[in-house]
Computed example of a mutant assay.
Amino acid sequence: MNYAIGVDIGGTKVAVAAVNEQGTIISRSVIPTNLDIAPEAMIAEIQQEIRRIIERSGVHMDQVVGIGIGAPGPLDSKNGLISCPPNLPAWVDIPIRDLIGRVFPVPVLLENDANAAALAEKWIGAATETDNFIYITVSTGIGAGIISEGQLLKGMKGNAGDIGHAVIDPSFGECVCGQSGCLESIASGTAIAKRASAIVGREVTAKDVFHLYKEGHPDITAYMKDVFNVLGVASVSMINTFDPEKIVFVGGVSEFGEPMFESIQQYVRRYALNPTGRKTEIAAAKLGQNAGVIGAAALCFHNGSFQ
């Protein structure tokens, strides 16, 4: 049996797992992302955690076919660089592939975290029977992984799918990127918490908004209908552009459940350009927090292709 090590790097935590060739996690751990130390020092901690996972899982190094890394963009996956992710402000042009590769005698692959998670859902998740789908994560930020004809769509540097900064409605005001009305500035968990706080007159989190919605708070219910509509707009834009069979949503916002999915589905049925596009399935992801490490491992087994 062969294994791969999946590493999922985020702004607050790093998950590391040993994954077999069926996509089963053998051993998994999570360590905090320390933003107070140099990136190279944090990578040294990741290296140590990889060693621990290999030892804990009982996997011999000669059974490890590679180490896959999923990280937030922007990055340069072809050259193995983490370029300048907003959630990792000190990580500018960090050669993580080479730094990890110096320690472990196996191939090391780097991919955008949303792309890696899309691979996981294609491999063993919500899109195993689908060669054309879009994975959309709606959490602190918004991003997408695009699978077309069984192949991961990467772009020039590996940053394709950064839909969070597609302009949807300039009237919503300025986004952190400098544009006005980006999808992320309207429908991300961060944006929802900010606008909902103004609506209810006190500071609330995205999780608080979820509870207020479930309780039937009238102003929050009306507001979230607008958010669902915006996600419908984004979905139709992706359908018209990429012609997928399915769109898979994941992230904290997907906790709103059936009302959100049905609202997006209705918008798609009404506004997608092509008759087949109007039938695009809107679905929930299956792998949750494990998608990142499983998808990173999938890079070593599938390298972005399921053909």
Rank of each mutant, 00 (worst) to 15 (best):
W91E: 00
F306P: 12
P89C: 12
L99Y: 05
V106I: 10
P86T: 02
N290M: 15
A191E: 01
G189R: 00
I43N: 02
P105Q: 06
V204P: 00
R269I: 04
I26L: 15
A90W: 09
G257N: 06
N240C: 00
A38W: 07
F306T: 12
G161Y: 04
G295D: 05
G73M: 08
V248R: 07
V204C: 10
I192M: 01
I37G: 00
S197I: 07
D219G: 07
G164P: 05
G277V: 07
N34V: 12
A284N: 05
Y267A: 03
G252A: 07
I96W: 00
E21F: 15
T241F: 08
E262G: 06
G58R: 15
I192F: 01
I192Y: 01
I146Y: 00
E281Y: 06
V248F: 03
T12L: 13
V230H: 04
G161T: 08
F210H: 11
A114Q: 08
N20D: 09
V19M: 03
A160Y: 07
T33S: 07
Y267H: 01
A118G: 08
R97S: 06
G292H: 13
V16Y: 01
S305P: 07
S263D: 00
P85N: 06
Y223T: 09
R52Q: 09
S77M: 14
R56L: 02
F210N: 09
R102N: 10
D169H: 14
Y271R: 09
A234W: 00
E55H: 10
D219K: 14
V293N: 15
V64C: 07
L212Q: 00
N159W: 05
I147C: 02
S83G: 10
V103C: 08
E121I: 13
E215I: 08
M156L: 13
L88A: 04
S148N: 11
A117D: 10
E111K: 14
V293R: 14
M156R: 13
L152C: 00
G216P: 14
E21V: 15
G125P: 04
V138Y: 04
T140I: 06
L81T: 05
V64F: 02
T221V: 11
A116T: 13
T190R: 15
K154P: 03
K214T: 06
G143S: 12
I186V: 10
G164S: 06
I53D: 04
T276K: 12
T137E: 01
Q179F: 01
T24L: 13
R202A: 05
I43T: 12
K286D: 11
Q22A: 08
A116I: 12
S77R: 11
T280D: 05
D219A: 15
D169Q: 14
G141R: 06
I67A: 03
S77W: 04
N2K: 06
A198K: 14
N303A: 02
E111C: 14
S171T: 13
E174L: 12
S148R: 11
D62N: 10
G80N: 07
P170Y: 09
D76V: 05
A283I: 06
